[in-house]
Computed example of a mutant assay.
Amino acid sequence: MIDTPPPDAPPIGGAFPDGAFPDGALPDGAFPDGALPDGARETVRAARRADAELLGPLHLAVWLETYPNAEAGIDAAWVREQRGEDGSAAGIDRWREFIGRTEADPAQWFCRIVSSPAGDGARPLGFVCGRRGAAEVVLGPMYLLAEAQGRGLGGRLMAEFLAWSGADPIGLWVTEYNAGALGFYRRHGFRPTGERELWRGRLPNLRMARPGAAG
């Protein structure tokens, strides 16, 4: 999946990893195994508060899919220690609050989700969110499940985000070892700024930026 974290999250560095959901990452039946039907059309739409019930667990699931990396000393246990609350009632409440902001002030706050076809349960497969800062638009978080990759869905999400951001410059953070996400952002006009950070002393992130129309 494409990774771009919120202010307290690491950048989206493992955005397009392989692998199934870790055991216990999601409620039973929320994200069943199996490929999507060939030719199915997924839907991209604005997030609604009711989506928080699945976006919280999905957020934890994509972290568990994306960030474990032996070289960085990051495993599923570390991810759960740092982000385990994302799938809890508190994490769901945070999503509900954030989505409420996008509904109350859509010019300032943004969130779109991509969901599977109705015949597959219309379940969320990924999302992209953002906000307008004082100097630039902040992209993140942005994630797409591994099972949904290679279908052009990341590009559809990014197109929605770029249309919303307009001519403003955009910034994001991405995990250094997430080669898929780095390539994805480069293809959409983002370039590394040279800034780096170790999120919570372990996850290596770098900053990328896309200039505004006048940049």
Rank of each mutant, 00 (worst) to 15 (best):
82 Q>H: 15
110 F>S: 12
195 E>C: 13
159 A>E: 14
90 A>W: 02
132 R>H: 11
127 F>N: 12
178 N>W: 03
166 G>M: 08
97 E>A: 15
190 F>G: 05
77 A>W: 02
60 L>S: 13
106 P>F: 09
169 P>A: 06
87 G>V: 01
129 C>A: 15
63 W>Q: 08
117 P>W: 02
74 I>W: 10
61 A>G: 11
113 I>Q: 00
145 L>A: 14
170 I>M: 10
190 F>R: 10
106 P>Y: 05
96 R>W: 02
78 W>S: 03
74 I>Y: 11
61 A>L: 04
108 Q>K: 06
187 R>Y: 04
64 L>F: 04
159 A>R: 15
195 E>K: 10
85 E>K: 05
89 A>V: 13
85 E>N: 10
75 D>A: 06
111 C>L: 15
91 G>W: 06
158 M>S: 07
179 A>K: 14
89 A>D: 14
80 R>M: 13
145 L>M: 15
140 G>F: 01
84 G>P: 12
170 I>W: 01
194 G>E: 12
68 P>Y: 12
162 L>T: 02
151 R>N: 05
158 M>T: 03
66 T>C: 14
173 W>D: 05
111 C>E: 01
166 G>F: 05
142 M>K: 02
119 G>P: 07
173 W>N: 06
159 A>S: 14
130 G>N: 08
117 P>G: 10
93 D>G: 13
99 I>T: 00
116 S>P: 09
135 A>G: 04
64 L>I: 15
125 L>M: 14
68 P>N: 08
136 E>G: 03
195 E>N: 11
90 A>Y: 01
139 L>T: 09
111 C>G: 04
180 G>E: 07
84 G>N: 10
115 S>Y: 00
144 L>E: 03
157 L>P: 06
173 W>S: 02
151 R>S: 04
103 E>T: 10
120 D>V: 14
154 G>Y: 07
140 G>A: 05
130 G>I: 04
154 G>F: 10
181 A>H: 06
108 Q>F: 03
132 R>V: 15
99 I>D: 00
137 V>Y: 04
133 G>D: 14
164 W>G: 07
182 L>R: 12
168 D>L: 14
149 Q>P: 02
143 Y>G: 11
93 D>E: 15
118 A>E: 09
194 G>R: 06
132 R>M: 09
67 Y>F: 14
107 A>S: 10
57 P>T: 06
88 S>C: 09
60 L>N: 09
104 A>H: 03
65 E>G: 10
63 W>E: 11
109 W>N: 07
74 I>P: 01
173 W>A: 04
128 V>K: 00
57 P>V: 08
101 R>I: 01
136 E>C: 09
87 G>F: 00
131 R>K: 13
